[in-house]
Computed example of a mutant assay.
Amino acid sequence: MSIATIDPSGGLTRDNLRSLLVAVCAERGLDPDGAELIKFTNNAVFRLRASPVVVRIAGSTAARDRAETVVKVARWLATHDFPAVRLLAGPEQPIRLHGQVITLWEHVPETGARPGGAELAVLLQRLHALPRPPAGLPNWRPMEEVRQRLAEPEELDAGDHAFLLGECDEIEEQLARLRFALPPGLIHGDAFVGNLIAGPRGAVLCDFDGTAIGPREWDLAPVAVGRLRLDYAIDDHAMLVKHYGVDVTEWDGFPALRRLRELKLVTSVLPILRSNPGIRAQWEHRMRTFRARDLTTRWQPYR
């Protein structure tokens, strides 16, 4: 497939992702042969075989719009020697190529034990204590991203679409009434164990698409919701509470944050529902139970 046929509004498939990978590697003098697609949800992530490089291709308008923030945060964290993934040294990033937005990263070899809630708590404490966040960091506006995804869904039933738009309105009203207990500040925005890498020198934080200035409670919510909703074998929430010192589930605003987190877990893959058919069954399961207000049925990670 020619790069010219890739729709810049979305619609990335495994085939045209490969074409895009070849193009960006050619531009930057990298070898794409044998590259492995290790993730394809709201972003597509390739690990190169010939060099320790990770190629991250934004999979939606929301992800493309956040790329500048991702780069800014990554560079700022590097100045503080924070344990996080590092951008590949060299020409300016993000890379804009054929209507798509791409970032290149140093590959972190996964050599240690699986990081869990304790490691995440330590990194969040350190992140929340960093001085002077980078200028121009956006304020936390979670519905902006959700609505962007709802504006470009692939094969979404009209009834489900209307329901999800209604959820946005209702949750937004709930959030406006919340009185947060913790002081606001820099937040990661998607702080769960899946965004930790077991690096040679300890856990490393990645994925800064949601980084913003906002309520610290939001950084504690993903792991709490994961314990309640996702079919995980390990209770990372208990360790997060022990080491961070706050149990967000005991705060009276947690039900609203849970509803928001579950809405995001349902809508995160809307722009690639057709492009990545392997996630369809799990998405339908999530959508069905979320729409039924079923708070007990377990979900599985997208694979």
Rank of each mutant, 00 (worst) to 15 (best):
L240H: 05
M239K: 15
W251E: 06
V54I: 14
V54F: 07
E144S: 02
E27I: 03
L265G: 04
N195I: 14
G10C: 14
L165Y: 05
D207F: 09
R177G: 14
G112M: 04
P142C: 09
K72M: 11
Q300M: 14
H237Q: 13
L123A: 07
L12T: 02
G10I: 14
A151P: 00
P109S: 04
F82M: 06
A74P: 00
D7T: 01
R293N: 15
P8T: 13
V122K: 08
R14S: 12
V71F: 00
P138S: 02
A4S: 12
I95C: 02
T249I: 03
H243R: 11
R64G: 11
E250T: 15
C25I: 12
R201F: 00
Q282P: 01
L260Q: 07
F192T: 11
H237E: 08
M287P: 01
G199F: 14
R126C: 06
P183A: 15
P215Y: 05
G185M: 03
K264S: 06
R286S: 13
L120N: 04
F290V: 08
T103P: 05
K39E: 11
Q125L: 13
I171E: 03
T61F: 12
V241L: 05
T249K: 10
R177S: 14
N16T: 11
I6P: 04
R28D: 11
L270M: 11
G202W: 05
P184L: 08
R149H: 12
R56E: 01
R96Y: 09
L240N: 03
I272F: 02
R288K: 13
L205C: 04
L165E: 14
M239G: 06
G189Q: 06
V204C: 09
D236G: 01
C25Y: 02
G226R: 15
L263I: 04
R96E: 15
R141P: 00
A158P: 01
D236E: 10
V70R: 05
G11C: 10
L137E: 00
A221Y: 08
A198N: 05
R280G: 04
G202N: 07
P153T: 15
A224I: 05
E262W: 04
L77F: 07
T103G: 05
L273H: 10
G166Y: 05
D33I: 07
P94W: 09
T79V: 12
I279P: 02
A44R: 07
L30P: 08
A62G: 02
A233M: 07
A281D: 10
I102C: 12
V204D: 06
K72S: 07
T61I: 09
P184R: 15
D236H: 12
G245F: 02
E155V: 08
E173K: 15
S9E: 11
C25Q: 03
E167H: 02
A281M: 08
E27L: 09
R132F: 10
E152V: 12
S275R: 07
Q125N: 13
E167R: 15
R28K: 02
L127C: 01
A58I: 00
P271Q: 12
L87H: 01
D236V: 02
L196H: 11
Q174Y: 06
R291M: 10
R126G: 05
P153H: 10
L37S: 00
C206G: 03
D81H: 14
L123C: 10
P109T: 01
G202S: 11
V146Q: 02
Y244C: 12
R261V: 08
L175G: 05
F290E: 08
K39P: 00
R293A: 14
V71Y: 02
V193K: 07
P83D: 04
P215G: 14
L230H: 09
P134G: 01
